[in-house]
Computed example of a mutant assay.
Amino acid sequence: MEGTGASSGKMAEAFRGEYYQKVDSKARVLIPAAFRRVLDAGDTRTPESPRTRMVIVYGGKHRAFCECYSFAEAEQLAAQVAQLPPGSKARLKAERDLITLSATTEVDDDGRIVLPPKVREKLGITPEMLKDGIDSALAGATNRFTLWRRDVYEELFLDAIDDEDDDDTDPLALLGQAVPGV
């Protein structure tokens, strides 16, 4: 598949930005149009699968969020897991947290997905919360995006970034591209 990152050596369009979306009473959430374009590019539609698919990884017991991948990126992730030595502790953990504890879902014609029950459980979204609707946060992360309950995102993710930013490090310096004296 052209431009899907690791296999071609060329990065596909990245998931960028942060979006806040309501999760409705039926556990549906709108995927932002910019994210849908990346998901569309990472999935080949067939008569058997006419809608765009995405994979939501809800593994990792210390994570308060889920990671969402285009179908192509999820296949690349699975290929990386398959490279680990069979039966090794690393492979068993990676298989459990990245493959077994994941769900494939489809984007409907209105651009929404239904959050599977295990994803709702991971995010701490209860049936009571769904009655009135609850806000989610979708945050771009290059080849994937993270999905959070908005209040948790603001508390854990944004506050952690604020704490880390106290050292005045230019983020481009992390990539070795900072302009000295600017």
Rank of each mutant, 00 (worst) to 15 (best):
P85N: 07
P127C: 09
A94Y: 00
A33Y: 03
L123D: 01
R144I: 04
V23R: 03
R45W: 11
G9R: 05
C66K: 05
R53H: 09
L92M: 10
T126H: 08
I31C: 05
K61W: 12
P47Y: 10
T104F: 01
S7A: 10
V57D: 02
V38F: 03
S88L: 06
D40I: 04
S70N: 09
A12F: 07
T100C: 03
R53P: 02
E73V: 11
E67C: 08
I31Q: 04
A12L: 11
L130E: 13
V23C: 12
G42V: 09
M1W: 06
Q83F: 06
A139Q: 11
T52K: 03
S7F: 01
E95L: 14
L39C: 09
E75W: 01
R37K: 15
L115M: 08
F145S: 01
M129E: 13
E48F: 06
Q83V: 10
E128Y: 07
T126F: 07
L130Y: 05
T105N: 02
L115A: 02
T100P: 00
Q83T: 14
R120K: 13
G59I: 00
R63A: 13
N143Y: 02
A34R: 14
A14Y: 00
F71T: 00
T142R: 09
F145H: 02
I134S: 04
R51S: 07
Q80I: 04
G140K: 10
A41N: 11
L138C: 12
T44P: 03
K61V: 14
Q80P: 02
G17P: 07
K122M: 07
V81P: 07
R51Q: 13
D97F: 03
T4D: 13
V81D: 11
G140Y: 11
S136T: 15
P32T: 12
A12N: 13
L130F: 05
Q83E: 15
E2A: 14
K131L: 13
G42E: 07
D40Y: 04
P32E: 12
Y20S: 11
A78S: 08
M54N: 05
A12P: 09
A34P: 03
L84R: 07
R91P: 00
G5Y: 05
G87R: 09
L92V: 06
D97W: 01
L39T: 08
D109H: 06
D24P: 01
R144M: 15
T104L: 03
A137W: 02
T52S: 13
A94T: 01
Y58G: 00
R37I: 10
V107W: 04
D24Q: 02
G5L: 12
T126N: 09
A141L: 06
G5H: 05
V114T: 15
D109L: 08
S102A: 10
R120N: 05
L84Q: 09
G17C: 08
G42S: 12
L84A: 07
T146K: 06
E75M: 12
M1K: 09
P47N: 13
L130V: 09
A27D: 00
E73M: 14
I99P: 00
